[in-house]
């Protein structure tokens, strides 16, 4: 038995050693060109905008769903679309934005619904990629409680890094084309635009709520704090429903109602009814959260209409 346990321990240590080495010393060859790598680029653009800007915060329903230039032209305000990927999680995305908030800014939070009722809130593999491959400084924004949720992703992330790194040794000079999920697929407003000229792709439908889902109780506490932090810096928070395809909306209806109710109860109601952001399937590109160009145009006009009263009249 001792021999068996010794072997098991040795093998475990060996695996831990290799994974640790990979985590800290092996370059993340995939993430460094992926959309996640656009986060520092977007932050750089955002930092240059100055006060009085409109900042959209959320996941890929924003990055693949807005024409920020049109919004900027219509509302006469500088606009930055910080939406990237729901897997980064609402907690990190929101916390990260506070440091950029300035007097007169309007922060529009349009997070995917899953961020309110699944562990998506804390972030998933994408956040681990950001923290270890893209933005190591961001680790300071993550507390122990959040690390606990991220921990299961870390061994997988280290192993994936290694898996991607090994073939890159002999494909080092191979230039990857700028596809829809490339770092360079965003314009200077932060909108993904490469897919605007592409034909739509089929996508998996949304899983229907089973009835067992529960709102994450930490979300409402977190959002209250987030709003306070923004107000302390002279900025405002507006809650906007994410865009979603109508079938997915129906599949998630129970939880969407719960999210809407929770926000209302916390005096943070959506500025528009969620159903008005449930679009028909032909407006979607390759996911029930990603719009094609037609969808982007319609959603952009809807957003302008919804934001106008708050921006122009400076409504609270």
């Amino acid at each position: 038995m001792k021999r068996f346990l010794k072997y098991c321990l040795q093998l475990t240590l060996l695996v831990v050693l290799v994974l640790s080495a990979s985590l800290f010393f092996v370059p993340d060859v995939v993430s460094e060109n992926s959309i996640l790598a656009a986060l520092p680029d977007k932050e750089k653009e955002l930092a240059q905008l100055g006060p009085g800007k409109i900042v959209f915060v959320g996941g890929s329903n924003l990055s693949f769903g807005l024409d920020s230039k049109t919004i900027s032209d219509s509302l006469h305000k500088p606009v930055m679309n910080m939406g990237l990927h729901a897997g980064i999680g609402l907690e990190y995305t929101a916390r990260n934005i506070v440091r950029f908030a300035e007097k007169g800014d309007v922060i529009v939070l349009a997070s995917e619904y899953e961020n309110f009722y699944t562990d998506n809130f804390y972030g998933e593999m994408e956040l681990v990629s950001v923290l270890f491959g893209i933005e190591p400084d961001g680790r300071a924004l993550v507390d122990i409680r959040q690390w606990r949720h991220l921990a299961p992703y870390i061994p997988t992330y280290s192993a994936k890094k290694l898996k991607n790194f090994v073939p890159s040794l002999w494909q080092r000079h191979k230039q990857l084309p700028v596809d829809i999920y490339h770092r360079l697929s965003f314009n200077r407003y932060g909108d993904a635009f490469v897919h605007w000229q592409m034909p739509d792709q089929d996508y998996m439908p949304c899983t229907r709520n089973s009835g067992k889902e529960k709102l994450n109780p930490e979300v409402s506490v977190f959002l209250q704090q987030f709003r306070q932090d923004l107000v302390a810096r002279g900025a405002r928070l507006l809650m906007l429903p994410p865009v979603i395809d109508r079938e997915a909306f129906a599949a998630q209806q129970t939880m969407i109602d719960s999210v809407t109710y929770m926000l209302k109860k916390n005096d943070m109601a959506y500025i528009q009814e969620p159903v008005n952001y449930a679009f028909e399937k032909p407006y979607f590109f390759n996911s029930y959260y990603h719009l094609n160009k037609k969808g982007v145009d319609i959603r952009t006009q809807q957003v302008i209409r919804d934001l106008k009263p708050y921006i122009l009249n400076n409504n609270p």
């Binding site: 093998l11 695996v15 290799v18 994974l19 061994p155 192993a159 290694l162 898996k163």
Partner: peptide, 18 residues
Amino acid sequence: RWSVYLIMIITCLAFYKQ
């Protein structure tokens, strides 16, 4: 033998989906 074990474990982790 141990290299094979190690590679298999790392590969499993690399492909792992929750």
